[in-house]
Design a protein around this nucleic acid. Structure first.
Lengths: 199, 199
DNA sequence: CTCGCTATGTGAACATCGTTAACATAGCGA
DNA sequence: TCGCTATGTTAACGATGTTCACATAGCGAG
């Protein structure tokens, strides 16, 4: 594991880290192959030994975002002192907060036309794993009788759409809430009221 | 109003039209200053007499999108045979369908990092007018007593976030509903249940 | 240990694209 | 009719993604 001179050791991961750093500092426009290479102490074209494309590098960054988000959502499901319904609300809040706190990366994960998700099966799989966290919890809510039980997919779509939209509107500057937690809690609360079983 | 040879007549609007055409045919990546100019029968740099920037051209395209969407939403409020609550649901469905049918343009209106909305007051105003259509209808719903009345903004955010998110997830390929109307109706229906006054 | 293969990195060059500068002309008003 | 301003042209520059020919490190086979 030399880190000097010629061979780098683990350039692939280093490049992803660097791209993430730049993303937070300058936004996605700052990610240039030359800049990433230079920061890694490597030439511009070195990255092409590990990524076929700039898109491939971005896809790797996006994948990491989905994986991190999956972990964050999964942790909510370990909070057994909350009811499953409360867990679902908490998950929605965590989702929105994660997105806003990693705004540029989140935009890369979703809105980026530069990444054709279907070209990166790993990325698609990570995205799917993420939404599965929502789905599993919705299923539990339905099983416990607190939630309308028609189809899990429908309820999942409602939660996902609302939290995704809430995050995106903030990220893109259309809504500027003073307190992101309260903003998220409020929206999730209304949505929850709509999908809960009438009692 | 000559259309030949040297002076074009109304190049500014023509360029916006052309950018819109390209947007539908090839997506936003296809909008290149040279390509837009060529299609207008004009040199690459001619566009810079009308737009300071490529961003400015894109902003004009986005603005037109918000204006068109505003008109579409406004028409819903003329459907007086529906109750205000039904109108709001209808508006949500129309919103999602418009977004999906104008996918590339809708992405430009929102997710585009290429456009800094704060640099284009006209664009910001058009976006604001659009959300006002939602807001006015929400207010009417609250006044008529069918809807929870805490604050109009909160309810507006819920509707906007959900329909925006629902549209984006479809546009970006994360959800592929067989019938877009049914998909939109379903989500809007759940949301409506959440914001309606309990009776 | 040595030969040689493969993975990894380099530097130069190319094509594309946004943008600008210097120049040209059309059309309108004084 | 003169000349000013708006509009358009061509050529060129700089940035950026990408590729190609070349160089070297590291590892396994013999």
């Amino acid at each position: 594991m030399k880190n000097d001179n010629y061979h780098h050791g683990n350039l692939r991961e280093a490049l992803i880290d660097i791209a993430l750093d730049i993303l937070e500092e300058e936004g996605s426009a700052g990610i240039k192959m030359r800049a990433v290479g230079k920061r890694a102490g490597v030439s511009a074209s070195a990255a092409y030994r590990h990524f076929s494309d700039k898109s491939a590098l971005l896809a790797a960054v996006a994948k990491r975002g989905f994986d991190d988000l999956t972990i964050a959502l999964n942790q909510v499901r370990t909070k057994t002192h909350l009811s499953v319904d409360e867990q679902l609300q908490e998950m929605g809040v965590i989702y929105v907060v994660f997105a806003v706190e990693h705004a540029s990366q989140y935009r890369l994960m979703y809105g980026s036309e530069a990444i054709r998700t279907e070209d990166y099966p790993d990325l698609a799989a990570s995205a799917h794993n993420m939404s599965r966290e929502y789905a599993l919890l919705v299923k539990q809510c339905q099983a416990s009788g607190v939630m309308k039980g028609e189809t899990t997919t429908e309820i999942l779509h409602v939660m996902w759409a609302c939290t995704h939209g809430a995050a995106m509107l903030v990220i893109d500057g259309f809504i500027s809430p003073p307190d992101i937690y309260q903003y998220a809690r409020n929206i999730v609360n209304y949505v929850d009221a709509g999908i809960r079983e009438d009692d």
